[in-house]
C-alpha cells in the first residue's frame, strides 16, 4: 500500500531525511520510532504530500504522491503532529467540512460523520466549538477527521501524545483494530506502544533507518535478551555466586542483591533458549536452594532504542 523509495529531504545543507526506503502492506501497523528531530515528522509529511521530497519516491496504493497527488491523497487519512483543527468551528461543523472535502454529500455525509463520532466518542461535544475543548477531545476530533473516509492508508503523527492513560489505551485499541484492514504508519516516543500495537517497527536516527524489524526481533538486539533472572529464598551468597558463575551455558553473572540472593546470568550464545534456565533449575535442586523467581528476559526495547540512537552514551555492559 505504501512504498517509500530512497526518500530524501534536505533543508538547506542539513539532511533531515536521508535515503529512507520501506514498504507497508495492508494489514500491517508500522511503528515509527526515533529521538526528537530524527526526521519522523518530515518523513510523514512527505508521504502525505504536504512537503515535496528532495529526492526519492512515495507511492500510495499505486499512485505517486508527486505525480498523482489527488488520487494518492484520497487513499490517505492523516493526523498531523499536535492534531490541528479549525478552532472557530464546532466539532460537527469541522467533521462535515472534512467529509465534504472527502467527497461525501447528503445522507452519505451524515452517516460518515456519525460513524466517526461514535468511534471517537465525540457525541457529548458535537455542538461545542473546538476552541472550548480539552486537549484530549481536540485530539480525537482531528483523529476522527483522519478516518472519516475509512482510508486504506492511515498516517498518524504521535496519535497518543498528550492523552491521559485511558485515552491512550482507547487510541491504541482503535489503531490495532483498524490495522487489520489498513496500512498504518504511526510515530511515537512511547516504546510500550510499539509492543502493544505494531506488527513492525522502524527506528530512525538523524534521518536514517537504524533498525527495522518486528518488535520481538528488535528486542533480540538487547544485551538483556536471553538472560535469566533468578531469586532465591535461602542459601549462602558466596557459594551461590561461585556456583552460578561456573554454569556451563552461562557467560557472565550479575548479582542484583545479596541475602536473599538475586542474580542475572547472561547466556554464552543466544541460540539455546531455555537451556540456561534449565541448568539453573537443576543446580538449585541439587543444592537445595529455594527458587522464588526464575525467568528468561526477552530484552527491552528502551535499551535497544538507547543503544542504537545514542552510541556514545550507551549503557556499559555490567
Amino acid at each position: 500500500m505504501i512504498e517509500v523509495q530512497n526518500l530524501t529531504k534536505a533543508f538547506g545543507a542539513k539532511l533531515a531525511v536521508n535515503d529512507i526506503s520501506f514498504t507497508v502492506q495492508r494489514g500491517q501497523v508500522l511503528g515509527f520510532l526515533g529521538p526528537n528531530g530524527a526526521g519522523k515528522t518530515t518523513t510523514m509529511r512527505m508521504i502525505t504530500g504536504f512537503i515535496p521530497p528532495t529526492a526519492g519516491d512515495v507511492v500510495v496504493g499505486g499512485f505517486n504522491i508527486e505525480r498523482d497527488p489527488i488520487a494518492a491523497k484520497r487513499l490517505i487519512g492523516y493526523l498531523p503532529e499536535n492534531a490541528p483543527s479549525y478552532t472557530d468551528m464546532t466539532v460537527r461543523g469541522f467533521l462535515n467540512f472534512a467529509a465534504e472535502l472527502r467527497g461525501f454529500r447528503g445522507a452519505e455525509k451524515t452517516r460518515a460523520v456519525e460513524r466517526v463520532v461514535e468511534m471517537c466518542f465525540l457525541g457529548s461535544v458535537l455542538h461545542q466549538s473546538v476552541e472550548t475543548l480539552s486537549k484530549g477531545f481536540r485530539h480525537r476530533t482531528c483523529f476522527a477527521q483522519s478516518i472519516i473516509h475509512d482510508p486504506a492508508v492511515l498516517i498518524l503523527d504521535e496519535p497518543t501524545d498528550g492523552l491521559d492513560p485511558n485515552q491512550k489505551h482507547e487510541v491504541r485499541t482503535l489503531i490495532r483494530q483498524m490495522g487489520e484492514k489498513k496500512a498504518i504508519i504511526f510515530s511515537t516516543h512511547i516504546l510500550e506502544e510499539v509492543e502493544a500495537v505494531c506488527s513492525r517497527a522502524i527506528i530512525i536516527d538523524s534521518g536514517k533507518i537504524v533498525a527495522n524489524g518486528t518488535p520481538a526481533e528488535l528486542k533480540q538486539k538487547s544485551t538483556l535478551a536471553g538472560a535469566v533472572t533468578v531469586r532465591f529464598a535461602n542459601g549462602d551468597p558466596a557459594s551461590m555466586k561461585s556456583k552460578l558463575s561456573a554454569l556451563s551455558s552461562g557467560e557472565r553473572l550479575t548479582i542484583l542483591s545479596e541475602a536473599p540472593t538475586a542474580a542475572r546470568i547472561y547466556p554464552k550464545n543466544n541460540g539455546a533458549r531455555g537451556e540456561l534456565a534449565a541448568e539453573i533449575g537443576q543446580l538449585a535442586a541439587r543444592e537445595n536452594w529455594q527458587i522464588e523467581e526464575l525467568h528468561t528476559e526477552e530484552g527491552r526495547l528502551d535499551e535497544v532504542f538507547r543503544t542504537i540512537t545514542l552510541p556514545e552514551t550507551a549503557p556499559r555492559k555490567s
Binding site: G49, F50, K73, Y78, P80, P84, S85, A98, L101, Q145
Partner: peptide, 10 residues
Amino acid sequence: GTIELLLTMP
C-alpha cells in the same frame, strides 16, 4: 497548523 490538514486533503 491547519494548513497541513487542508493541503493533505484531496
